[in-house]
Each structure stands twice: as C-alpha cells, then as structure tokens.
C-alpha cells in the first residue's frame, strides 16, 4: 500500500471523526429519583425553539423559522415525556387567554428566576461530589443544586407537582469551514460541502423543585447534527429517559 492510499484512508477517517462532536453534561442532585422525589409530573414553562443563522459577518435569530418550529417541538416534548412515563404540562404563551393574568405573577417570574439562577450559580458552587467524565459525557451528582427563591414553593400546591422545567432547542447554522481544502483534496466531498451548512444543535433542560427551592437537574447537550424530527426525538427521549430513572 503506498502513501497515497494511506492518505485517503486517513482523510476519510478524520472526516468521520470530525463529524462526531458531541457534548452531554448533566448535573443533578443526589435526592433526585429517590423515594418521594420521582419526577412523574413536570410543568414545562413555555419551551423555546431558537434558530440562529450565522453568516461570515454576523449571527441573527431567525424569528420566523423559530416560531414555525415551536408547536412541533411542544408536541415532541409531550410525546417523548409520555413514552417515559412522565406527564408534561406545557404552559405555552400562545395558549394564554385573557383570564390567565396570574401567569404574570407566578410562572413568568419563575422562568426568569430559573434562567437567572442558572446563570449566576453552578452546581459545583454549592457542594460538589462526584463527576464522571467519559467520551464527552459528564454526569455530576451533587448534594445540593443551585438555590432558587423559596417564594415559589406555593406553586407546588397550585399545580400539583413541585417540578417546573425550562426546555429549549437552539440550532446554529454556520457557514462550512475548509471548503476549499476539501475541494482540493477530495473533490466530490468538497463540492458537496458547498451545498451543506455546518449545524450545531443544542438542547437544554433545567428542572427545579420549588418545594426544596433548588434546581435539581440541569442538562445541556450539543450535537453537530441538524435538528431533524428524528434527531430531536432521539435527544428528547434520551433526556426524559434519564430524568425518569
């Protein structure tokens, strides 16, 4: 086998390896899933679907594309939660009617609180225990999660569950890099690369237990795959599967 053949093989292998980037990071409290803390019902606060498109010059959110995907995303969330035995109550802004004024006292501030606390606190900052790292997958189990204000604890009585979540998808389309190099080295792949965008899909979920006033589960995953229905279904099912265990 001459050097050229080895080179072809190496190039093919590196192409595949470069296409399998992915990160999954889960942080959860040790109490989660224990008796009395089984997550069987979650109130999901207005799931977000964001489509970000980057050009060479700037990154912009495509509002139209984002909005068109939201209802499908809600259905997918619901279906995959049910398949894992979790009842999901999705509070969608689109469904608000004139009698839902309390939403602005209860759930809108709670969502804001969860986002803020996620930004301001880490699981590690509270009391870190064990974290396992293996091939891009990190699962951290902690004594305690980021603390939210206990003033939301009354919502557990109103909604019949202490678990409230934020779920979201963000897809980021970027211009493909190294097209010219590919074109010169492997022309067919190079030509094909001009027709495809580089896409990263992010999925995140944050679950809070308002009874104990803490975030009990936080998951962020990033895959360099398009947000097709199959890919999203796979991500969502896996996520709820982990939560339901």
């Amino acid at each position: 086998m001459n050097k050229k053949r080895y080179f072809i093989l190496l190039l093919l292998a590196s192409l595949f390896l470069s296409s399998c980037r992915g990160i999954l990071r889960i942080d959860q409290t040790k109490m989660m899933g224990r008796k009395g803390n089984n997550v069987k019902r979650i109130v999901c606060l207005n799931p977000d679907y964001e489509v970000l498109i980057s050009t060479k010059d700037q990154t912009q959110k495509s509002y139209q594309k984002s909005a068109s995907k939201e209802s499908t995303f809600n259905k997918m969330l619901d279906r995959n939660a049910r398949k894992n035995g979790i009842q999901l109550q999705i509070i969608d802004n689109e469904d608000l009617n004139k009698h839902d004024a309390s939403f602005f006292n209860d759930l809108a501030p709670l969502k804001q609180e969860l986002l803020q606390v996620s930004y301001l606190q880490n699981f590690d900052n509270v009391r870190n225990n064990t974290s396992k790292f293996r091939l891009g997958k990190v699962i951290g189990k902690h004594e305690q999660g980021p603390l939210i204000s206990p003033r939301f604890s009354y919502l557990a009585d109103i909604y019949g569950t202490p678990f409230f979540s934020i779920n979201g998808i963000a897809t980021h389309k970027k211009p493909k890099k190294g097209k010219l190099l590919l074109l010169l080295t492997i022309p067919p792949v190079g030509i094909a690369s001009f027709f495809f965008q580089d896409v990263d899909t992010y999925y995140y979920t944050i679950i809070a237990d308002v009874r104990s006033a803490e975030i009990i589960y936080r998951e962020v995953r990033q895959v360099n795959l398009r947000a097709t229905e199959a890919n999203l279904n796979s991500l969502l099912y896996d996520s709820f599967h982990i939560i339901s265990k």
């Binding site: 003033r151 604890s153 009354y154 557990a156 104990s212």
Partner: peptide, 10 residues
C-alpha cells in the same frame, strides 16, 4: 397562607 409555607413544612 404564606408563599413560603410549602417550603417551611417540608
């Protein structure tokens, strides 16, 4: 009927 009741009882 306080907002913190559920937390406190727990």
């Amino acid at each position: 009927g306080g907002k913190y009741n559920v937390y406190v009882k727990r």
